[in-house]
């Protein structure tokens, strides 16, 4: 009867510290299934990408079918596997306030992948971008140059 379940054999190597955090999250919910979204976020922010082998781990922790975990994960915003990524907000305000210029400037920087995202919630301080999850808003050409130069 369980032939339909994907093989959960390919298990990720879970660092102890990560496993402890995961168990603490699961324990905070009356039913383990409730922890699914926080655990997905934990995996995504710790590993930087969605590798299918994690689905089995999350599925086991939450008592959810592996396919369901996969399906939900793939419906979420997933970071790309490789390279540094900068998410430039292209919501209405940011577009009007110069997201295009931000994109163009960033495209000149090597080894950075630029993606346009919907809204970073910094509308009153447009334009904005997020780098490694850190929000930078009120961007001006000077600030942008400083940000880019600061790292390189």
């Amino acid at each position: 009867m369980n032939q339909g379940r994907p093989e959960a054999a390919a298990r990720p190597v879970v660092p102890e510290e990560l496993a402890d955090r995961a168990h603490a999250i699961v324990a905070a919910y009356p039913e383990p299934k409730g922890a699914l979204h926080p655990l997905l976020d934990l995996v995504l922010s710790e590993t930087g990408s969605w590798d299918g082998t994690w689905a089995g781990w999350v599925a086991q922790l939450t008592g959810t079918p592996v396919v369901t975990v996969h399906g939900i994960a793939r419906s979420r915003r997933l970071p790309e596997a490789d390279g540094e990524e900068i998410a430039v907000c292209t919501g209405l305000s940011c577009r009007w306030m110069g997201a295009e210029a931000v994109c163009q400037r960033l495209q000149e920087v090597p080894n950075i992948r630029v993606v346009a995202v919907n809204c970073l919630g910094a509308c009153s301080a447009a334009p904005a971008m997020a780098r490694n999850g850190r929000l930078h808003d009120g961007l001006t050409p000077e600030r942008l140059d400083a940000l880019v130069a600061g790292d390189r």
Binding site: V67, R74, S75, R76
Partner: peptide, 14 residues
């Protein structure tokens, strides 16, 4: 999910 009980399918992506 409800009849065969195998949970073999899911909606993937959004």
């Amino acid at each position: 999910a409800e009849v065969s009980g195998t949970d073999a399918l899911a909606v993937s992506g959004s």
